[in-house]
């Protein structure tokens, strides 16, 4: 959980937003950079869960 927190904090700051910032507010006004960011973090999250499950299960 501590590692996840570190990664989330770092990525959010570097990418300029999170699920609420890019995902809801950015996509809601149709900002292209936010749509790109949302697609990227969704994809990265899905891939991480896939790899995690593959390693653990």
């Amino acid at each position: 959980m501590a590692v996840a927190g570190l990664i989330v904090g770092f990525g959010t700051r570097l990418g300029g937003g999170c699920t609420s910032g890019h995902g809801v507010c950015g996509v809601g006004i149709g900002a292209k950079d936010s749509i790109a960011a949302t697609l990227i973090f969704m994809w990265a999250g899905m891939l991480t869960v896939l790899i995690y499950n593959w390693l653990v299960l």
């Binding site: 959980m1 590692v3 996840a4 927190g5 570190l6 990664i7 989330v8 904090g9 770092f10 990525g11 959010t12 700051r13 570097l14 990418g15 300029g16 999170c18 699920t19 609420s20 890019h22 790109a36 960011a37 949302t38 990227i40 973090f41 969704m42 994809w43 990265a44 999250g45 899905m46 891939l47 991480t48 869960v49 995690y52």
Partner: peptide
Amino acid sequence: VTGAAIFGIGWGLGGFCP
């Protein structure tokens, strides 16, 4: 791109976003 990807990895690991 890098920030969003890093954030996504952390999100998938912990299930928490800010």
